[in-house]
Amino acid sequence: MITLSFPLYWPMLKHQYLIDHRVVFWHNLLIVFWITMNRYVKPFLRWAGGKRWLAEILQPIVSKRLNESNVYFEPFLGSGAMFFSLQPPKAHLSDLNGDLINTFQQLAENPNKVIEYLLSLPATKDRYYQERKKKCRTALTQAVRFIYLNRNCYGGLYRENRQGIFNVPYGGNGRDHKGICRDNTLLNASLILKEKNVKLLNCDFAISMDKAKEGDVIYCDPTYRKVSRKHFDRYGKDIFSWEDQERLANTAIEAFDRGALVIISNASGNGIRDLYPQGRVARLIRPKGLGPKNNPKSQVEYLFILDPLELWDEWNKMDGIKIHKI
């Protein structure tokens, strides 16, 4: 992968810059060229348990499976780190979090308005709590609020109370919303979402995964907090229960039986291995931690892989992956 240091600033505020439509056109064209050459786009959201590190490992083998006719499914979208790394020709991106999906949709359709609105908001503690309790009237302002809170909250966490109200406190670090506006992270993400054949859906994972067919690829990253049958958590008002784990496994096996490659990040304990008898498991170690300070202690994560082609020799050649029978 070629990594270019190419700062491209997007002049959005009319009171600071005189915008010429010809400048905007050539600016967009230049960024499209840069993305095409570089092929690397950062996720615009901070997300606990994000998989940018894993995307680098899986990208070679997964990209081989995706041609112009195959579809990539990511039914637990989160920050979309895997999608932005793979940049598949076709994608179905979905999540149960409606505000998250709306944010992706608004960024794809109205990037200029999103950026302009964000740049008008100060990164202060007082404004953060004003935005947190504000009720938005439009899809656009809701998307702006979502990005603003995500970039300014403690540790990039997404957490709701039982009433479905976002309740993460103010973070106050240098990774606020201004940077992703000025370094074109938002604009780059928007262009990828528009350049690719992407469908964004607010739905349960099973609705999306049931559409997968032979040759398609599914990557699932269900959020969990503790390895316990009582504590699988979406960080929202709805708990990801043990019954959901069983339902996910059944849905994944059905897609596998139809010929889809299914990859699931999950905890390995309390019977989860038993849910995937047809698959293989890979044990991965990475530094991981929630909150602004990363936990230096290495932690274990597992990939459950249902590969209809059973190309286990290729999987074992991947950096950091060792495949085992379940």
Rank of each mutant, 00 (worst) to 15 (best):
residue 25 F to C: 02
residue 28 N to E: 13
residue 30 L to H: 13
residue 30 L to F: 14
residue 30 L to T: 14
residue 35 I to Y: 02
residue 37 M to A: 14
residue 42 K to A: 15
residue 43 P to Y: 08
residue 44 F to A: 08
residue 44 F to V: 09
residue 45 L to T: 03
residue 45 L to Y: 10
residue 46 R to P: 01
residue 46 R to C: 02
residue 47 W to R: 01
residue 49 G to L: 08
residue 50 G to P: 00
residue 50 G to N: 14
residue 52 R to W: 07
residue 52 R to K: 12
residue 53 W to P: 04
residue 53 W to K: 08
residue 58 L to T: 04
residue 60 P to L: 10
residue 60 P to H: 13
residue 61 I to Y: 10
residue 62 V to W: 03
residue 62 V to G: 01
residue 63 S to C: 05
residue 63 S to R: 14
residue 65 R to T: 00
residue 65 R to Y: 07
residue 66 L to C: 01
residue 67 N to K: 14
residue 68 E to Y: 12
residue 71 V to W: 11
residue 73 F to L: 12
residue 75 P to C: 10
residue 75 P to L: 12
residue 75 P to N: 11
residue 76 F to P: 10
residue 77 L to N: 05
residue 77 L to K: 05
residue 78 G to E: 08
residue 80 G to Y: 07
residue 81 A to L: 12
residue 82 M to Q: 06
residue 82 M to D: 02
residue 83 F to K: 07
residue 84 F to G: 11
residue 85 S to L: 00
residue 86 L to C: 07
residue 88 P to H: 03
residue 92 H to K: 13
residue 96 L to A: 04
residue 97 N to Y: 03
residue 97 N to K: 06
residue 99 D to S: 11
residue 99 D to H: 12
residue 100 L to P: 09
residue 101 I to S: 07
residue 102 N to M: 01
residue 104 F to D: 03
residue 105 Q to E: 14
residue 107 L to K: 06
residue 111 P to R: 05
residue 112 N to A: 15
residue 113 K to H: 07
residue 114 V to Y: 08
residue 114 V to P: 07
residue 116 E to M: 07
residue 117 Y to D: 10
residue 121 L to K: 14
residue 123 A to G: 04
residue 127 R to I: 10
residue 129 Y to G: 00
residue 129 Y to L: 02
residue 130 Q to H: 13
residue 130 Q to G: 05
residue 131 E to V: 15
residue 133 K to Q: 13
residue 133 K to S: 13
residue 135 K to W: 01
residue 139 A to M: 10
residue 139 A to F: 08
residue 139 A to C: 04
residue 142 Q to P: 00
residue 143 A to Q: 08
residue 144 V to W: 04
residue 146 F to W: 15
residue 146 F to Y: 15
residue 148 Y to M: 12
residue 149 L to Y: 06
residue 150 N to F: 10
residue 151 R to L: 06
residue 152 N to A: 03
residue 152 N to L: 06
residue 154 Y to D: 00
residue 154 Y to W: 15
residue 155 G to Y: 04
residue 156 G to I: 09
residue 159 R to L: 08
residue 159 R to I: 05
residue 161 N to C: 09
residue 161 N to K: 11
residue 162 R to E: 05
residue 162 R to Y: 06
residue 163 Q to L: 13
residue 163 Q to V: 01
residue 164 G to C: 05
residue 166 F to G: 02
residue 167 N to T: 04
residue 168 V to E: 09
